[in-house]
Amino acid sequence: MSRMLMAGLTRAAPQLICLAVILLLNWLAFPGFFDMRIQDGRIFGSVVDVLNRGAPVVILAVGMTAVIASKGVDLSVGAVMAMAGAVAATMTVAGYPLLVVLLAALGTGVLCGLWNGLLVGFFDLQPIVATLILMVAGRGIAQLITEGTIVTFIDPGLIFFGTGSFFWIPMPVILAVLVTAMAVLLVRRTALGLLIESLGVNRSASSYAGVNSRLLLLLIYAFCGLCAALAGIIVSADIRGADANNAGLWLELDAILAVVIGGTSLLGGRFSIVMSVLGAIIIQAMNTGILISGFPPEYNLILKAGVIIMILLAQSLSRTGFLHVLRPAPTQTAEAKVKRA
């Protein structure tokens, strides 16, 4: 067991070093970074803050990992967050009990995911194209639900999911850990992990081997929708309201970035949920770092762009060797594509 742990740590070394450097820089910029204190039955401190604020993206990244491993992508998660938040807020205000509110909001996410999965798995649309539809229409639907206003609520039950804590630990962190643990159990204790990877690497060969790829895709996108809905509930509970315009804005991109930083290839196949979670934490640590250094929070957009370019460069180098970059090699690619066709 410890050998497996060591192997895992070695594989995660670049990401762990990256996180360590960012945390170190944060500490240099703000010496109190690692301070923690307990107040009102809850831990406070910058590190906890990173985890707390990073929770929605962590949860999104868990769902997105499964989608990307299947050689897809889900652009609609931000819009689904807005929809789920809108459903939760509106129903709470209308006086429905908490359980019904939560089920309805999560159900919204699953429904959106099933729609995406239907388009990708059964109608064979490209994932980008299929999920673009909800990305565009989703915010409109969310605004339809909230009737264009920011619906605020005071229901303590729902608010608890955003700002509450349990055994001193903030609720979003608990939820993120729970989702991660359940997802890891689900893919590693059942056959789903193997089947998703096989589907992502070679869908045709997987079908020949009897993998039910259509149903599997449906399930993957539905799960991603569920994660998005949970993230949406947390975000709206945090601000005690549903903002259809801004809830989850650009978070689909953060989620994709988290998965890519975690080392799962955009071309599908091998994936690691834990690594994606690590990727999401790295992103949040960068956000927090920029914030406490006194820069405007939007500066980290440049940082993210830099990170994407570096990763793409690194992946390209490791895929084809250093020469590939220096020498235009499209003829090889073209030939490979002819063979595939």
Binding site: L194, E197, S198, V201, N202, G269
Partner: peptide
Amino acid sequence: GIIGDLSVRENIALALQA
């Protein structure tokens, strides 16, 4: 036929698992 990136073990187990 093959699922190129997956291991020999996984390739052998795939159909039975499915």
